[in-house]
C-alpha cells in the first residue's frame, strides 16, 4: 500500500529546496545588477578618465565647448543640498516617529497621520519641483531681499528645503515601525522604576531603536543624494562656486544628478558623454562611501 504521508513530505522537501534556491537567485540577481551598473559606468567613463585623469574630481570648470570637465561644483552642490536637507528633516522625522510610535500608536488618527506621511513619498518629484518654483521661491525671494543677498529665490537653500520635505517619510516610516516594536516589558520595567514618559523615551526607546533609526536616516540621505527632478528645477543650475559662505548657501548651485539629467540627451561628442557618465560614477562612489561611513557609525553605536 502506498504511503501518502511520504509523498507529501517529498514534495514538501522539493518545495523547500526550490524556495531556498529562489531566494538565493533573487538576492544574487540584485547584486549582479549593481555590479553590472558599476562596470558599465566604469567602461563608459574610460574616455573621460583618460583625457582628464584624477583632476576631474577637483577641477572647477565644466565647459562642453572646450571639452574641459570638472566635478567639484556639482560634488559640493550634491553634498551641501543633501546634508542641509537631512539636518532640516531630522527633527521632523524623529518627532513624528516618537509621536506615532509611542504616544499615539493606535487608532484612526494615528493611521491617518502615518498614511499621510507615507503619501509624501508617493508624490512625484516634478510636483515638488513646481510647488517649489511657484510657492516657495517667492517666499524665499522675499526673505533674501530682507537679509541682503541676491534675490534669486532659487538656489541651494530652496532646493534643500524641498528635499527636506521629500525625505522625511523615509526616516519617519522606519522610525514609527521600530518604536512600535519596542517590547512592552522593557518600557513597563522603566515605568515601574519610576521613570517619566520622557525618561522612558530617552533611556529605553531611543537606545533600543538607535541602529534602526540611524538606518532610516541613511535611507533619507541616499534619497537626497540621488534626487534629480525637483532639485534641478530649484537649484539654479550654475557651475560657478560662490566666493562667500552666504552666497554659497543662498545662491544658485548644481548637483551631479541634475547635470546628468539636464545634459545627457544632447551630449553630442564622446568625451562630453563620457564625462557625464563619469559624474554618475562619482555619484555612485559618494553614495557608497557615505553608506559605509554610516554602517561604521552604526556598529560603533551598538557596541557601546
Amino acid at each position: 500500500m502506498k504511503n501518502k504521508r511520504l509523498d507529501l513530505s517529498y514534495s514538501q522537501m522539493k518545495w523547500e529546496t526550490m524556495f531556498r534556491k529562489l531566494l538565493i537567485f533573487m538576492a544574487a540577481l540584485l547584486v549582479l545588477v549593481i555590479i553590472g551598473i558599476l562596470i558599465t559606468l566604469i567602461i563608459e567613463s574610460v574616455p573621460s578618465i583618460k583625457a582628464l585623469g584624477i583632476k576631474f574630481l577637483w577641477s572647477k570648470t565644466w565647459d562642453p565647448v572646450q571639452n574641459i570637465y570638472g566635478a567639484l561644483p556639482f560634488l559640493i552642490g550634491t553634498l551641501l543640498t543633501s546634508f542641509i536637507a537631512l539636518i532640516l528633516s531630522l527633527p521632523f522625522s524623529y518627532s513624528v516617529s516618537i509621536y506615532l510610535g509611542e504616544y499615539n500608536p493606535k487608532g484612526w488618527l494615528s493611521n491617518l497621520l502615518k498614511n499621510t506621511i507615507e503619501l509624501i513619498a508617493a508624490v512625484p518629484s516634478i510636483i515638488y519641483g513646481f510647488w517649489g518654483l511657484f510657492v516657495l521661491v517667492p517666499v524665499i525671494r522675499a526673505i533674501e531681499m530682507k537679509i541682503g543677498v541676491a534675490p534669486y529665490g532659487i538656489g541651494i537653500t530652496t532646493a534643500s528645503l524641498v528635499l527636506a520635505v521629500m525625505i522625511i517619510p523615509y526616516a519617519a516610516s522606519l522610525g514609527i515601525t521600530l518604536i512600535r516594536m519596542v517590547p512592552a516589558s522593557l518600557k513597563e520595567g522603566a515605568y515601574a522604576l519610576g521613570a517619566t514618559r520622557f525618561e522612558v523615551i530617552r533611556s529605553v526607546i531611543l537606545p533600543y531603536t538607535r541602529t534602526g533609526l540611524f538606518a532610516g536616516v541613511l535611507l533619507s540621505l541616499g534619497r537626497a543624494l540621488g534626487e534629480t527632478m525637483a532639485v534641478t528645477m530649484l537649484i539654479g543650475n550654475t557651475t560657478s562656486i560662490a566666493g562667500t559662505f552666504k552666497d554659497l548657501l543662498f545662491g544658485p548651485g548644481n548637483t551631479m544628478a541634475s547635470v546628468i539629467a539636464n545634459e545627457f540627451t544632447e551630449a553630442d561628442h564622446t568625451e562630453y558623454l563620457s564625462a557625464l557618465v563619469e559624474l554618475g560614477l562619482v555619484l555612485f562612489f559618494v553614495t557608497v562611501i557615505i553608506n559605509l561611513i554610516g554602517k561604521r557609525i552604526i556598529t560603533r553605536f551598538t557596541q557601546h
Partner: peptide, 17 residues
C-alpha cells in the same frame, strides 16, 4: 570665451530646465 553648443559654460545667470 564661451562658444556655441547645445549646452555651454555660462559666464552668468541661472539655469531653468
Amino acid at each position: 570665451k564661451v562658444g556655441k553648443a547645445t549646452a555651454v559654460n555660462w559666464p552668468a545667470g541661472l539655469g531653468g530646465k
